[in-house]
Design a binder for these strands. Sequence first.
DNA 1: AGGGTTTGATAAACCGGTATAGCTCCCGAA
DNA 2: TTCGGGAGCTATACCGGTTTATCAAACCCT
Lengths: 338, 338
Amino acid sequence: MARPTIADIAQRAGVSKGAVSFALNGRPGVSEATRERILRIAEQMAWRPHSAARALGASRVDSVGMVIARPARTLGVEPFFAHLLSGVQSGLSAESISLQLLIVEDTEAEIEVYRRWNSEHRVDGVILVDLTVRDPRIDELKALEMPAVVIGGRGGKGQLASVWADDRDAMLTIVEYLAALGHRRIAHVAGTPVFQHTQRRIRAVRDAAPRLGLLDAPSLTTDFSDAEGAATTRRLLAQADRPTAIVYDSDVMAVAGLGVAMEMGVSVPGDLSIVAFDDSILTQLMHPALTAMSRDTFDFGRQAAEVLLEVIADPATVVNRRTADPVLTVRESTAPPS
Amino acid sequence: MARPTIADIAQRAGVSKGAVSFALNGRPGVSEATRERILRIAEQMAWRPHSAARALGASRVDSVGMVIARPARTLGVEPFFAHLLSGVQSGLSAESISLQLLIVEDTEAEIEVYRRWNSEHRVDGVILVDLTVRDPRIDELKALEMPAVVIGGRGGKGQLASVWADDRDAMLTIVEYLAALGHRRIAHVAGTPVFQHTQRRIRAVRDAAPRLGLLDAPSLTTDFSDAEGAATTRRLLAQADRPTAIVYDSDVMAVAGLGVAMEMGVSVPGDLSIVAFDDSILTQLMHPALTAMSRDTFDFGRQAAEVLLEVIADPATVVNRRTADPVLTVRESTAPPS
DNA sequence: AGGGTTTGATAAACCGGTATAGCTCCCGAA
DNA sequence: TTCGGGAGCTATACCGGTTTATCAAACCCT
């Protein structure tokens, strides 16, 4: 027999399909003795539920989705997504729920995917990343009544559940660390201002500057690419009163910045301290190795999965879970200014 | 009405469910006039097939799977997977087939996933990566009769369909290029010998050495990690008659090797030429930028998806598609030996 | 004109589960 | 002694599609 169905089990156990269903799902309706007998037979026949059949009757699909809207070109350099994915899956695997991953070009395409997933019943819920200010996805998902959890930002007026780390605090930690070393000219090479986390980091720098007595603390926005990271660094270092420390919003930009500094004969950390907001193998491979803000991305993903499952179980829930704070890993790229 | 079903459409069109099904799937059984009317109504009601219902009746799920068996830690540095994924999806999206992605720790877990997917009917087929010598997955998938396509290697005695690039030729190109520059001591920092592509590259170096008059051409295996890449480089450069050129099997190891060279005061490309087998942003970010073998990974994935769909349509097909040859991108890390 | 084939459609079975109404015992309380 | 009620199980409807058997009407040929 190719793939046994519950009807096969029922026949073999001499009971009805319903009884088998009860037994296999641990719900009342059969005696302990019968349940055990059925479970033994199911085990022995290597029965597995047919996911489609289950999805049709009940309305859960045991599958959640995640769409990443980034041009393929800029994707994959940061280990961020890979770790996040692993984490999400470890959070899902406990309930043996599968993950659909989709990479699309832009937010419009992403929303289209949500619509399709919704009408085709392909997923029970979704995980959102790269939250922007006034993110159109939030309203859309609300309208579709699709369970969702936002990673890395509040879910818009508390509408959606979210899992987030305290970017503001992390950025303050970095700036305070640099100020404590004696730096007074600190520059911030930020990401794209449409992202909420970029905004929060920029605000954190701006707010901390006067308190720490910084002479100058500009935040310069980029598109997160190595090219713009390098160009911005070049502009900064060409200034008469150039910064003695630069904070980069991503590890890729920090590495690009380090390259520019070396090329311009600016020694790191002698003449310039460099801090990367995100940590990865990249920062560790450099010479000097870069001081970086490390987040437990894996755990981030795991928690997002957990929260999503809660929301799916009870769509009324709105959790706003704050994850462990990022910690600053000091390496060789930071020192007191000369 | 929340989500219209074909019954709703049938009622509105004044026909039976069956007629609607025929019309929507473009099969004979309804007149052109009726078909058009039904299609218009379906369009107007924004009908979408319920994926589970369709999967239950027919036996296709319109979903394919891909399992990556690597410890999360080593994952995600190389843009390889991200690009591959994008490519696979672009190949699948035409037929609006979705992709299930799973990251697991080892091959054993991977096989377990295939078994589960098979018995739960979760996917119509799978894509295999990181083919090893005598890969146990091939026999398993054959036994499960699950459509599959292998990326980056032949599918074991022509059993499974595959999509591959010519590693051997690519490696020969690199070695010939270095020999033409005048190098006679070339070392090869390889990956894990369990992988077929590693074996092929090692053999290519060994075979080419005498023909090109190389004095020495050792292939040293590693676990692909930056740590072992660095350690191996250190050993090589400490030798009395150290190599004048090193070929690395991955971009990460090449970068680590470059770091070691700089640290030991070996100038690149003055005293040592470096070539990375895989290209990525990493190699471009370095100073000097690394000469590297570039593959069109996106296209690789796209083709794998296409072949898989062919195999799913007709399980008897065994395609062995060879993709475009990788090309050597010469940058600043290679020069004639001093 | 009559018998056979084609066309266009329908009703019902089916896929493999889940949910529910209902039936039969059996036990305890009134 | 009877009745209520819960435990244990069966039968059946149902989820939303696909597929098949069936059938009436039209069409075709000699």
